[in-house]
Design a binder for these strands. Structure first.
Length: 260
DNA sequence: ATGGCATGACAATCATGA
């Protein structure tokens, strides 16, 4: 029994819905984690996604943030244990949604950006990461199969950054953020992308400005992490850059993992 | 050079992203 799981920061689900529907038609991915939907729940396009064969579980707000998990009806069980936001971290911002699918605990996060190292938002990012790690420790004790996907807003290693010297110490690549990423790995999670040989300059985000995509000036900040039993089943993890080539793209590309 | 581009709220610019 195989299962495919994707994560994609769509940077406005309203604007990107045509791209998403096209992508779902092409890939028929079983589970799709979305970030930055930027929609209140009453505006979520659940009917359009239902028509495309997907059940939606979502938590949004006006203008900013917003997360959703799409489940392909034909292939997935009914979701249970739906969790919106971290239970140990009071937060107005909708940045996390989790559910359990036939014993598989799926956590989808839109991690804070952090704005600038040392800023108030950077402190919020580190606190959010600490709360996530504490909460996940318990989730991993309760579930053998844990999948953490999303826009982490952290490039974990120099090879995940187009110009590590330029980005040294900057937000998204600073030592405290990378240490927080390692703390997630220390829980027993593995970076599915690095389970396999990958092309040089593999990134998931490129600035809209300065022709960054064409010049391969990107960062790998969107990830799918797997607990050991899932990592053992992981058959592939790839970044699909095709949607980024389209007109009016999201600045993030989808990441896709398959579990055998 | 804190810009450059994109999105949303709002009605001309501004907050935010990464």
């Amino acid at each position: 029994m195989t299962l495919s799981v994707a994560t994609w920061n769509v940077n406005s689900l309203k604007v990107r819905l045509p791209h998403l529907l096209d992508w779902l038609r092409q890939h028929a991915t079983d589970v799709v984690c979305l970030q930055e939907t930027k929609l209140t729940d009453d505006k979520f396009p659940a009917e359009e996604l239902q028509a495309a064969g997907y059940r939606s579980v979502f938590a949004g707000q006006k203008t900013y943030n917003g997360v959703a998990i799409l489940l392909r009806e034909a292939s997935t069980a009914v979701p249970a244990e739906v969790q919106v936001n971290l239970p140990n971290f009071a937060d107005e911002q909708k940045r996390l949604i989790a559910l359990t699918l036939d014993g598989l605990r799926i956590v989808n996060g839109y991690f804070p950006n952090g704005q600038a190292v040392g800023s108030e938002k950077f402190g919020y990012k580190l606190q959010w990461l600490a709360a996530l790690t504490d909460w996940l420790r318990g989730e991993m004790a309760r579930h053998e199969q844990v999948l953490l996907a999303g826009d982490f807003n952290i490039a974990p290693e120099p090879r995940d950054v187009h110009d590590p010297a330029l980005w040294d110490g900057q937000v998204l690549f600073s030592e405290p953020e990378r240490a927080a990423f390692r703390a997630l790995l220390d829980l027993g999670l593995q970076d599915s992308f690095r389970l396999f040989e990958q092309p040089e300059r593999s990134y998931t985000w490129w600035d809209y400005r300065n022709l960054a995509f064409r010049r391969k000036m990107g960062l790998r900040i969107d990830h799918i992490l797997l607990s050991a039993p899932l990592a053992a089943r992981c058959a592939s993890c790839t970044i699909d850059v095709e949607p980024r080539r389209r007109e009016q793209p999201s600045d993030h590309a989808p990441v896709l993992a398959t579990l055998a």
